[in-house]
Design a protein around this nucleic acid. Structure first.
Length: 387
DNA sequence: TCTGGGGTCCTAGGACCC
DNA sequence: TCTGGGGTCCTAGGACCC
């Protein structure tokens, strides 16, 4: 039996959502002019998170530095992201999608897959998808693209065809006509590096990739990846729409400095800040972590990273920070200027019992109390800010 | 022009055990 | 004295996604 999968993708999500908010407040619609969403526009290191269609037509791209975009387009309208509002928009969007099928997999804040196999009775899937797209537009004020296919890969590829506010199909029998002429880079999981490797080998289109013998492909990109690419280029994908929300496997935070730093005190302060954030987040989700990792990024974007295992899982800021500091001293020579510092934890568990060590640090009670106050303070700030 | 922040998965080599 | 193969864990690094 043929499956019917939808992939629904919000068009320029953050930009559309900021536009909706502006319009509600009586401001001009930024979707109609060259505009972008970015971090702090005064920070030269900010990059563009989302761009309007008029901005894209001028050559402005996501992930481009704001300073560069401003040179291309001096009149560019820049708005700062509003995460609390984006979460609300996302919830509204996912809610409407879920009313079309309970078999829903949220893929990111602005994308989801729906298994519609038993949800398009006599109807044409295109009609159902059009209804969904129009309902989002009418009720929430922003547009989406819906891609329809017999598996997730094809649905996702289809939603990326012409935008905005469109429904496209990509059934298996349409693959040679609609997908094979596209450049390899358009295939899911083919990024910059893989594109380079493939084009160097003379493979430029998805169709060429589909016809390449798997052995040659394996020599280029490795066995496992080659098998997947070969399947995908031929339009095959058997992965199910996963309705279970996956638990996080890691949690991390990083800070990029507005100028490269070599002062150990300033770097330590940044490490302290990210440790507070990471530890707070895992406590909020009732996790404890067994692995702590730390990295520094230098001026030339090379990264030096270190990780280690904790004697036992923890969510205590001071313990995580202590490991991170030790790792930093191993990874960094103390002099080379640093662009960015990051800290992550992984091997997360929900272990609730504490294995009491005879040699437990006598300061432990103090550490825990400090964390409790941090969490309280955080909760207070968020309440006053978002209510 | 000069590149954010947060994730997932894979690979390869070394250590260690049986 | 020199030799095997498999399994697991750890670390560092790389590639991709939004």
């Amino acid at each position: 039996m043929r499956r019917i999968i939808f992939h629904i993708d919000v068009n320029s999500a953050f930009l559309s959502w900021s536009a909706v908010k502006g319009v509600m407040e009586g401001k001009p619609d930024i979707r109609l002019v060259p505009s972008v969403v970015s971090g702090d526009p005064n920070d030269r290191r900010s990059i563009i998170t989302a761009a309007s269609i008029p901005a894209k037509k001028l050559g402005i791209k996501t992930a481009q530095p704001v300073s560069m975009a401003l040179r291309t387009c001096p009149g560019l309208v820049i708005v700062q992201g509003d995460w609390a509002w984006y979460r609300q928009c996302s919830e509204g969007f996912i809610g409407i999608c879920r009313s079309y099928s309970p078999v829903l997999q949220q893929f990111s804040i602005d994308e989801c897959f729906l298994d519609m196999t038993f949800r398009c009775p006599q109807g044409n899937p295109v009609e159902v998808a059009t209804r969904l797209k129009d309902e989002v537009k009418t009720r929430l004020g922003f547009t989406v693209n819906v891609g329809i296919g017999s598996n997730k890969l094809l649905a996702k590829m289809a939603s990326d065809f012409e935008k905005p506010d469109k429904v496209h199909t990509l059934w298996e029998d349409e693959v040679p006509e609609k997908m094979w002429p596209l450049p390899v880079r358009d295939l899911l999981w083919v990024g910059k590096k893989t594109e380079r490797r493939l084009t160097d080998y003379g493979i430029h289109t998805i169709g060429q990739l589909a016809q390449l013998n798997p052995g040659s492909l394996a020599r280029l990109v490795g066995n496992k990846f080659a098998a997947q690419l070969h399947e995908n280029a031929n339009g095959r994908d058997s992965s199910p729409v996963e309705t279970e929300v996956q638990e996080a496997k890691s949690c991390s935070a990083e800070r990029t400095f507005s100028r490269d730093l070599d002062d150990p005190r300033e770097i330590d302060r940044a490490l302290f800040n990210v440790a507070c954030i990471v530890a707070h987040r895992i406590r909020a989700d009732k996790f404890k972590a067994s692995t702590v990792s730390m990295f520094v990024k230098y001026r030339d974007f090379t990264i030096s990273q270190k990780q280690c295992q904790m004697a036992q899982p923890t969510d205590v800021t001071a313990l995580i920070l202590a490991e991170a500091r030790r790792l930093l001293s191993e990874a960094w020579d103390g002099a080379t200027p640093i662009r960015q510092v990051g800290l992550g934890v992984s091997k997360l568990t929900h272990e609730s019992f504490e294995q009491m060590s005879l040699f437990e640090d006598p300061k432990m009670e103090y550490y825990r109390e400090w964390d409790r106050r941090y969490d309280e303070e955080y909760a207070r700030e968020h309440k006053s800010k978002y209510r």
